[in-house]
């Protein structure tokens, strides 16, 4: 079976990464009421690189992603076991306020979800609630910088007062990325950020992600194996709530060690 050729040939861009570890997840179990969604996952996530989570629908990759900024706390019936060490501290420690954690771990969602406010207010919101700006001019600077980094500045600089919802889908998603960046996070979680976008907008976001990994630790859930191959350096394959295989993207796509990974990336299931 090892002779089967993988469907995806990774782009050369996906080089190996030896960056330091940013997040160290140890023995994570997630339960929804009596239903176990994640089974004993341990995973290392490197800094300044893109880690992609792939796997069929319902495999737990989004659930696992949401553990990383404790968004599962907002679901009453969810319970998370295990340690997630970020810079040496366990983020599941009750002493850690999820509000502070989320200011260091930003998140971008599947569907662009700008606030029904102006573009300016969308980006300013995080900075305002965390008190990051010392004044109006400081806030203006943060907003310009964030929109620049999200590659949106040139398109919106003349209409910052326009509602964020008036932008196109791809622009909205970049606005959401700018909004996340404005809080000055270290980690950015992306939950299928391109699944609601057309191919051109997707290409722009992928380019953007590639630029962003210079500064941030990026964890991305994607349904598209091509996307994982194009933008990530590390890939983790999930199946039925278990982590099947994790490794450098190139290795996972060219020479997976596990049969199920092989089957998935060659399109036998999923």
């Amino acid at each position: 079976m090892a002779s089967a050729t993988p469907l995806i040939t990774p782009v050369v861009r996906a080089e190996r990464t030896d960056n330091p570890i940013k997040i160290d997840c140890r023995n994570i179990n997630v339960f929804y009421a009596d239903n176990q969604a994640i089974h004993d996952i341990s995973l290392l996530i490197p800094d300044r690189a893109v880690t992609a989570f792939i796997g069929p629908s319902g495999c737990g990759k989004s659930t696992f992603l949401r553990c990383l900024n404790r968004m599962n706390d907002t679901i009453d019936i969810a319970r998370v076991d295990g340690k997630i060490m970020m810079d040496g501290a366990d983020i599941n420690d009750p002493a850690i306020d999820p509000v502070l954690l989320r200011s260091r771990v930003g998140m971008v969602f599947q569907k662009p979800n700008p606030f029904p406010k102006s573009i300016y207010d969308n980006v300013a919101y995080g900075a305002r609630i965390h008190g990051l700006a010392s004044g109006k001019s400081d806030l203006d600077r943060i907003i310009e910088k964030s929109l620049h980094r999200a590659g949106l500045w040139e398109e919106v600089k003349d209409r910052l007062a326009a509602p964020g919802t008036s932008l196109s889908g791809g622009q909205q998603q970049r606005l959401c990325i700018a909004r996340a960046i404005a809080v000055n996070p270290e980690v950015i979680l992306m939950d299928e950020p391109c699944s609601a976008l057309d191919p051109i907008a997707t290409a722009r976001i992928e380019e953007l992600i590639d630029e962003l990994r210079e500064r941030y630790c990026i964890v991305m859930v994607t349904h598209s194996m091509q996307q994982a191959a194009r933008v990530s350096q590390r890939t983790a394959f999930f199946h039925l709530g278990k982590l099947i295989e994790v490794g450098d993207t190139e290795t996972i796509f060219t020479n997976p060690t596990n049969q199920r990974t092989q089957d998935y990336i060659t399109g036998r299931f999923g």
């Binding site: 900024n69 907002t74 502070l100 989320r102 998140m107 969602f109 919101y125 909004r179």
Partner: peptide, 10 residues
Amino acid sequence: IRTAALGLGA
């Protein structure tokens, strides 16, 4: 909208 705000650390 709610998750967006929570995700930003509100």
